[in-house]
């Protein structure tokens, strides 16, 4: 079947076999930043924004996304030549929140979603925001810290 998606701002018309997940489709068309960790909704590595809501793309049928906007981790940084990082990406990079990096795309998407809805989250709210994302490397300590720092930075730049 034919479906239409706007992926990272780009309108696309695509063929999708019945039963194909959004995860599979996105990876098939080149968005390899969307990671596959379990395909059962447990790890959050495949998280993307569907319109303005974070979803595990392994649990969403591609057909269900027809006509919607999808943002993957590749769509967060500036799309120009400088490719400036999103504040969440920058904070993850600078504050040691990345080790193997396999969970990073999903975790970053979850954090972006959290901060979009709650610009000043408490640590408890940060934890809730990423409680669907597994990371086996970091123990989450530096990720919480990075999200806290990104939130601060985003609030500051919103003020000016």
């Amino acid at each position: 079947m034919k479906i239409e998606l706007i992926v990272n701002g780009k309108q696309q018309e695509l063929d999708s076999a019945p039963g194909e997940t959004l995860l599979h489709l996105l990876r098939r068309i080149g968005y390899k930043g969307v990671k596959k960790g379990c395909e059962s909704g447990d790890c959050g590595a495949c998280a993307v924004l569907l319109d303005d809501r974070v979803v595990n793309s392994c649990l969403v049928l591609a057909a269900k996304a027809d006509g919607h906007r999808v943002t993957t981790v590749e769509g967060l940084a500036g799309q120009d030549k400088t490719g400036e990082l999103h504040p969440v990406q920058e904070a993850f990079l600078e504050h040691g929140a990345v080790q193997c990096g396999y969970c990073s795309p999903g975790m970053i998407i979850a954090a972006v979603d959290l901060l979009a809805h709650n610009p000043n989250p408490s640590d408890q709210e940060i934890k809730e925001g990423i409680s669907g994302n597994l990371c086996r490397c970091t123990g989450y300590v530096k990720q919480i810290e990075a999200i806290r720092i990104a939130a601060e930075k985003m609030r500051k730049s919103a003020d000016v």
Binding site: Y31, K32, G33, V34, K35, K36, T72, V73, E74, A77, G83, L85, Q89, E90, F92, L93, E94, G96, V98, G101, Y102, S104, P105, I108
Partner: peptide
């Protein structure tokens, strides 16, 4: 020193190439 890891940039951009990529 706490030097920022050089491989982190690709990883936060989703551009690191794991085997399935």
């Amino acid at each position: 020193a706490s030097i920022v890891r050089p491989d982190a940039a690709d990883k936060v951009r989703g551009e690191a190439k794991f085997v399935d990529d």
